[in-house]
Amino acid sequence: SKDAAQYVYDEAQKGVTQVTVNGVTFKFDNWQKLLKYAQKLLN
């Protein structure tokens, strides 16, 4: 959902490398990768 994507995006902006959405945890090597993933979700 857009809300989940926005949440992931906001978390990535904080510099975190993992985020949990609806009980599913996504882990990334660095926050830039998390940010890229979030941007994909938002598009």
Results as ranks from 00 to 15, higher is better:
S1V: 11
S1H: 13
S1I: 12
S1N: 11
S1D: 10
S1Y: 10
S1C: 15
K2D: 12
K2A: 09
K2G: 10
K2M: 11
K2N: 09
K2I: 08
K2S: 08
K2L: 10
K2H: 07
K2R: 11
K2V: 14
D3S: 03
D3Q: 07
D3W: 09
D3K: 02
D3G: 04
D3I: 13
A4S: 06
A4I: 05
A4Q: 07
A4Y: 10
A4T: 03
A4C: 15
A4D: 14
A4G: 04
A5T: 03
A5R: 03
A5F: 10
A5N: 07
A5W: 13
Q6V: 10
Q6R: 08
Q6G: 08
Q6F: 04
Y7N: 12
Y7L: 14
Y7M: 14
Y7P: 15
Y7T: 14
Y7W: 13
Y7Q: 14
Y7G: 14
V8G: 09
V8I: 10
V8Y: 12
V8M: 05
V8T: 07
V8K: 09
Y9F: 12
Y9A: 12
Y9E: 13
Y9G: 13
Y9L: 12
D10K: 05
D10N: 08
D10V: 13
D10A: 08
D10R: 01
D10Q: 07
D10F: 13
D10I: 15
D10Y: 11
D10M: 13
D10S: 06
E11A: 04
E11Q: 12
E11G: 06
E11M: 10
E11L: 13
E11T: 13
A12T: 08
A12D: 09
A12H: 06
A12W: 08
A12L: 10
A12E: 06
A12G: 05
A12R: 05
Q13R: 08
Q13I: 12
Q13H: 05
Q13F: 13
Q13A: 10
K14W: 13
K14Q: 08
K14P: 09
K14V: 12
K14Y: 05
K14R: 09
K14S: 09
G15H: 10
G15D: 05
G15K: 09
G15N: 10
V16K: 04
V16T: 03
V16C: 15
V16Q: 04
V16N: 07
V16A: 07
V16H: 04
V16D: 02
T17E: 04
T17Q: 06
T17W: 14
T17V: 11
T17H: 06
T17P: 06
Q18N: 06
Q18E: 05
Q18R: 04
Q18S: 05
Q18Y: 09
V19S: 03
V19R: 04
V19P: 05
T20N: 03
T20H: 10
T20F: 07
T20M: 07
T20S: 10
T20K: 02
V21H: 08
V21M: 10
V21R: 01
V21P: 10
N22R: 11
N22Q: 09
N22V: 15
N22M: 15
N22L: 13
N22K: 09
N22H: 12
G23N: 02
G23I: 15
G23L: 15
G23Q: 04
G23K: 06
G23H: 07
G23V: 14
G23P: 01
V24L: 13
V24K: 04
V24D: 01
V24I: 05
V24E: 02
V24Y: 11
V24S: 03
T25D: 04
T25R: 08
T25F: 14
T25E: 02
T25Q: 04
T25A: 06
T25V: 10
F26D: 02
F26M: 07
F26K: 02
F26A: 03
F26Q: 03
K27P: 09
K27L: 15
K27Q: 10
K27E: 02
K27G: 09
F28H: 02
F28C: 14
F28Q: 01
F28L: 13
F28Y: 04
F28W: 09
F28V: 08
D29M: 13
D29S: 14
D29G: 13
D29A: 12
D29Q: 12
N30E: 05
N30L: 08
N30G: 09
N30W: 15
W31K: 00
W31T: 00
W31A: 00
W31R: 00
W31G: 00
W31Y: 04
W31L: 07
W31F: 05
W31C: 01
Q32S: 04
Q32C: 15
Q32G: 06
Q32P: 04
Q32M: 05
Q32T: 05
K33Y: 07
K33P: 01
K33M: 08
K33N: 05
K33T: 07
K33H: 07
K33W: 11
K33R: 09
K33A: 07
L34D: 00
L34N: 00
L34W: 03
L35C: 14
L35R: 02
L35Y: 03
K36I: 07
K36Y: 07
K36D: 03
K36T: 04
K36E: 06
Y37E: 01
Y37Q: 03
Y37L: 14
Y37N: 01
Y37V: 03
A38F: 11
A38E: 00
A38M: 13
A38L: 13
A38H: 01
A38D: 00
A38Y: 04
A38W: 09
A38Q: 00
Q39M: 13
Q39R: 09
Q39T: 04
Q39K: 04
Q39N: 03
Q39H: 02
Q39P: 00
K40S: 05
K40L: 10
K40I: 04
K40T: 04
L41A: 01
L41K: 01
L41Y: 02
L41R: 01
L41W: 04
L41E: 00
L41N: 00
L41H: 01
L41M: 02
L42D: 00
L42K: 01
L42A: 01
L42F: 07
L42T: 01
L42C: 14
L42Q: 01
N43K: 13
N43E: 06
N43V: 03
N43T: 03
N43Y: 06
